[in-house]
Design a protein around this nucleic acid. Structure first.
Lengths: 221, 221
DNA sequence: CCAAGCTGTGAATCGTGATTCACTTTATGT
DNA sequence: ACATAAAGTGAATCACGATTCACAGCTTGG
């Protein structure tokens, strides 16, 4: 026996794996998952088709890894906001603005994660991440209810409703990008409307003043 | 020349077309679009695979026709509610209850229409019908704003948010049905929570009394 | 009854893309 | 340098369903 794994080969292996994932991400960002074939991803990553299978057992696993990586980042972003020292209403408003802003920064990728038709296995992942978003919102909502800032309501359903409220209005414009018909779109106004609707839905009347919204609105780059 | 179409042959043709659509619908209702192949639909309809192509130029057109038929019914249901002589708040609440109730009556079919991964051409149709739902809600919302029952807000975004609020909380349970893991679920409570959230989001505080909600809640079969 | 033109059939064909595999190249430890 | 085990390759294979097509059975007006 003579060959053994070394830190060096392990590092190279991890590197290539990351390179493949990044290549796949670039494709997603441009064409969505529908444009991602093993062959194109291989070419983009600069490896042969067959090599892909040294790093991922099959295409689904590759896609799943990518999906988790990208969705994970987004959810983490929301988690980070939830951890800031903000009132529940402020936290939620900021989530609305950030989510919208980030979606429009990488519209095709966002569409791919949020709504593009996917393999059933990935659809399952999508549900998991929706639930993860909802968990973040639910914790904020419960904090708000305890503080008396929000109405007493079913925080579980409310959190899912927030997920829906946030995603649905973005879908049509994001789909445009996905189809390559990018029209200019005032996503800032959209975020403003959505944040109002979200807070209203929780009965957060008077929790945020116009100035709070305006602050978010103006920070929105 | 000797052959010509007659009312009789036209009727037979229409009949078979309807039979095929209904066969497809049955499959959707059981397995979703992913279970719908030209071959299985043909067998279910009692015709040969090749015959399918006498009635629909290709699978996409068949699916599109089916999708339109089923989604059309659902949207019509909402339109009918919008036309009743109800206050905007009552109309919206009723939409929430009806939508939820109908979704759970045919859970797999509803999941298929609302969220199952589909061919891009069908995904386009889905967007169209989401917009159609939103149009109905928007008309109600605008009525509510004019009447001073709802807050002044962007009715376009609000209508989309309502679509999202209504759909998202149903998704996880409906997906369970789609996966064949049907767990018992109290959809009535869900409808109640959702209707509260919807009305809240529009700033419809005090538009509906508890008794209004209870009425819907109790009518829910 | 006949010719013309539908409608019905289902096995064979086709297209798409994932996956495999026999072979080459590279890395490792003795 | 050598034997061994991975990693790299890309053309060939495979799987899955939609679609086609050559032929058979009906309908119709003349």
């Amino acid at each position: 026996m003579a060959y053994r794994e070394t830190p060096k080969t392990q590092a190279r292996k991890a590197d290539t794996k990351a390179k493949i994932l990044d290549a796949a991400r670039q494709i997603i960002a441009l064409k969505g998952f529908s444009g991602l074939t093993v062959a194109t991803a291989a070419k983009q990553a600069g490896v042969a088709t067959g090599s892909m299978y040294r790093y991922f057992p099959n295409k689904i696993e590759l896609c799943t890894a990518l999906f988790r990586q990208l969705s994970g980042r987004e959810v983490d972003e929301m988690r980070a906001i939830a951890k800031l020292d903000l009132s529940p209403a402020q936290a939620l408003a900021r989530c609305c603005f950030n989510f919208t802003q980030r979606a429009f920064r990488a519209p095709v990728q966002s569409y791919a994660l949020m709504a593009e038709p996917l393999d059933p296995a990935l659809e399952m992942e999508r549900l998991v991440y929706r639930r993860a978003y909802a968990d973040v919102y639910q914790s904020i909502i419960e904090r708000g209810i305890e503080a008396g800032d929000f109405e007493e309501l079913d925080s579980h359903t409310a959190s899912l409703a927030v997920v829906g409220m946030l995603a649905e209005p973005l879908l049509a414009p994001l789909h445009q990008f996905y189809c390559g018909e990018s029209a200019p779109y005032d996503s800032r106004k959209l975020a403003l409307s959505i944040s109002r609707l979200c807070l209203n839905s929780l009965g957060a009347k008077d929790q945020l003043q116009d100035k709070d919204f305006n602050e978010q609105f103006n920070e929105y780059a």
